[in-house]
């Protein structure tokens, strides 16, 4: 990528200085770095607090008014070992259940929720974009997303119980798939709308069936947008607390719900363990985010950006 000029501020790079009548001042650069560093400081305080907490032994947690420790004086991995139940090894500690199952539950429900939302959403978006089917969907799905999930949880709890979906990852996956369907649909619809149709039409003229065009030509071309939409949907599902709180009890509680129960009366809230788990929970979004960072931007702009 070549350096580009600033859209409206005076530009500093040589290429643009020629075309720009004003020169960027040194004070501006100082201001820029100062402002960015300030923003980064604010961004990092809670994150560093979490990282530091995850490696602190209990004496340094200081949640309740004792001396404040910013950085672990005696760093330890014990919080991580603890949430995975390792400390139970031939000691008298027993974690009633370790974080493994909740992590599995979060993964399964978020992944399959994403699969449901993306398959139904992509198919419907294509159907509407190309054939004008399902004219009711855009409005219906906006309403669905606008509506606080809390307000439908009573009937949902009754339905899920009737279907025997309570406290199961598949029950969660289904509701996740539904609540994130609007995002999948809207993102994919914009991509399909913006996609040039010449290739599809050429294939049709060649005698391909419409379905074949969709599965063999359109979808492979849309790999990148699909990935960015899927990541966004995944992060939404992965972040949920409220729905899992109401629809799971024990076997398939997700990470945030499990985290709420990490406390004891010997010590109060187990902040170290919570922070350790919080760090672990950040891993999937970070990995996926890095993998498709570029597409993410395009996905989130709903195609309003024509590059």
């Amino acid at each position: 990528m070549e350096g580009r000029g600033h859209p409206f501020l005076p530009s500093a790079s040589k290429r643009h200085q020629q075309s720009s009548q004003m020169k960027r001042s040194i004070p501006f650069e100082i201001f820029r770095y100062a402002a960015i560093l300030a923003a980064i400081a604010v961004t990092l305080v809670p994150i560093l607090w979490m990282v530091s907490m995850a490696f602190k032994p209990i004496g340094e947690w200081s949640a309740t008014g004792a001396e404040l420790t910013w950085w672990p004086k005696h760093p330890t991995l014990a919080n991580f070992q603890f949430v995975f139940g390792e400390s139970a090894n031939d000691l008298i500690v027993a974690l009633d259940h370790t974080a493994l199952k909740p992590i599995l539950s979060s993964l399964l429900s978020a992944v399959f929720g994403t699969v449901i939302a993306m398959s139904a959403g992509t198919a419907a978006a294509y159907g509407l974009s190309r054939f004008g089917s399902g004219q009711n969907l855009p409005l219906a799905l906006i309403q669905l997303r606008l509506f606080p999930p809390m307000a439908v949880m009573i009937p949902v709890m009754i339905m899920w119980s009737f279907l025997n979906f309570n406290d199961s990852w598949w029950g969660l996956a289904l509701i996740y798939g539904i609540v994130t369907l609007p995002f999948a649909f809207w993102l994919m619809k914009t991509f399909f709308d913006d996609m040039p149709r010449e290739i599809e039409e050429a294939a049709l003229v060649e005698g391909c069936s419409r379905l074949r065009v969709f599965t063999r030509i359109t979808l492979p071309m849309m790999r990148a947008p699909l990935a960015s939409a899927a990541l966004f949907v995944f992060i939404l599902n992965w972040s949920d607390y409220l729905i899992a709180l109401l629809l799971t009890t024990r076997e398939w509680v997700t990470i945030p719900v499990y985290m709420a129960s990490l406390s004891s009366s010997m010590t109060g809230q187990l902040y170290g363990a919570k922070a350790a788990l919080g760090l672990i929970a950040a891993v999937p979004p970070v990995i996926m985010g890095i993998a498709i960072q570029r597409h993410l931007v395009r996905g989130l702009t709903f195609g309003a950006l024509k590059q």
Partner: peptide, 30 residues
Amino acid sequence: ILLMPMMVVPAVAGYMFFMLFQSGGPVNDI
């Protein structure tokens, strides 16, 4: 770095901010 908060699960952020805003916590320390 600026995009990092998006990757933190909101519930985790809740616990962190609960601690940050204690009267003897980091925010008051700063």
